[in-house]
């Protein structure tokens, strides 16, 4: 057990024992090698389930949103004197904390509904990178030893360095530490200042239009419309998604190139100024659709046009919820 893990458990135990929170949302060891699953701890006897390691992938903010929203719904028909409060604690890395900030900015719940157990984060293992390293074979056993990962496949054992399978979004992350927290499990770590954070966007933008279209179409054709990307995304919390609306029907139900593209384009555009580049939408995709390249472009525009990074500062207004006279509008009047 590492010291961060130890501190998470201690804090979770304290919060539950002192009845400061109703549930602690964190990660537990999964049933498959190098996997974790989200877990929901309601009793201090169970805090030893909580883990922290490079296999902790999902952005847990979406679970905070659904727990608090469901609770609010459940209290609607309760007499005022019987209403109960619900406070949720969450293990939050940088990107998770930025999603929580977005929720707070968008008035989804109140700060006091939430206890943030912040963790410094050096990135998680990208399942697609790992899969490519082992040529699509199943990882039968896997363990992390410092900066190395030992994996066993049907072709034998190999050792990989952690850095070569760390997700791209983590390698370029400037938010290794949570932007807001109530408790820090561990020391803040130095931020990795990537000087080519948007290289992935610039390289792609430099390609001829036909190549870009081909790449985009091929990626969208992989989509099986399971909606895992939408459902893990903390910024996708609409009560009714446009995909499920039938009057009017915005997007056809069929899995075909144009409906897939419409779904993904519309979802991505809802992410303008709201995507924290946590990589969860890519990580959950069974077909390995590369959504990040396109979402990162929105991130770049957000920064270039509005000097804004999604969820980075609680007090800074998001571009889509404010208007300034000198707002950039070149993308409307002079689209490239």
């Amino acid at each position: 057990m590492n010291s961060i893990e130890e501190k998470i458990r201690e804090e979770a135990k304290r919060l539950l024992d002192e009845k400061k929170v109703d549930v602690v949302i964190g990660y537990e060891t999964g049933t498959l090698p190098l996997q974790t699953a989200p877990c929901f701890i309601t009793s201090s006897d169970e805090v030893d389930k909580l883990v922290w390691n490079p296999c902790c992938k999902q952005n847990l903010a979406i679970y905070v949103h659904s727990a608090l929203t469901q609770h609010r719904e459940s209290q609607k028909r309760v007499k005022p004197e019987d209403k109960k409060a619900k406070i949720v604690a969450v293990v939050a890395r940088g990107c998770t904390s930025r999603s929580l900030v977005i929720h707070l900015q968008e008035k989804q719940y109140n700060r006091e509904d939430l206890v943030i157990i912040g963790v410094p984060c050096q990135g998680y293992i990208d399942k697609n990178k790992l899969e490519a390293k082992v040529d699509g074979l199943e990882v039968i056993t896997g363990s992390i030893d410092g900066d190395a990962i030992k994996v066993e496949t049907s072709k034998g054992k190999t050792e990989l360095s952690l850095i070569e399978v760390t997700a791209d979004n983590c390698l370029e992350c400037r938010f290794c530490n949570p932007v807001i927290h109530d408790f820090m499990a561990g020391e803040a770590i130095p931020v990795y200042e990537s000087d080519d954070e948007f290289a992935v966007v610039d390289e792609f933008a430099a390609l001829p239009e036909a190549d870009r279209w081909d790449y985009f179409s091929a990626e969208m054709n992989k989509c099986m419309r399971c909606y895992a990307c939408r459902n893990i995304c903390p910024s996708c919390y609409c009560k009714v998604c446009f995909v499920e609306q039938s009057q009017p029907e915005w997007v056809g139900a069929g899995v075909n190139p144009s409906d897939n593209q419409v779904f993904q384009i519309m979802r991505m555009f809802h992410m303008a100024g709201r995507c924290v580049d946590c990589g969860s939408c890519v990580e959950v995709c069974a077909e390995g659709v590369d959504l990040r390249k396109f979402l990162k472009k929105l991130d770049k525009d957000d920064l270039d046009l509005y000097e804004h990074r999604a969820g980075a500062e609680l007090d800074k207004e998001a571009p889509l919820s404010t208007f300034r006279e000198n707002d950039a509008e070149s993308f409307i009047f002079e689209p490239k």
Binding site: A37, P38, C39, F40, Y63, M224, C226, A228, N231, I232
Partner: peptide, 21 residues
């Protein structure tokens, strides 16, 4: 069910799931 994202991955990849709309 708490961790379940309510996505369709399990049903869509399952060889026996057969519900349709």
């Amino acid at each position: 069910h708490q961790g379940c994202l309510a996505c369709g991955t399990c049903s869509y990849l399952c060889p026996t799931c057969h519900c349709f709309d």
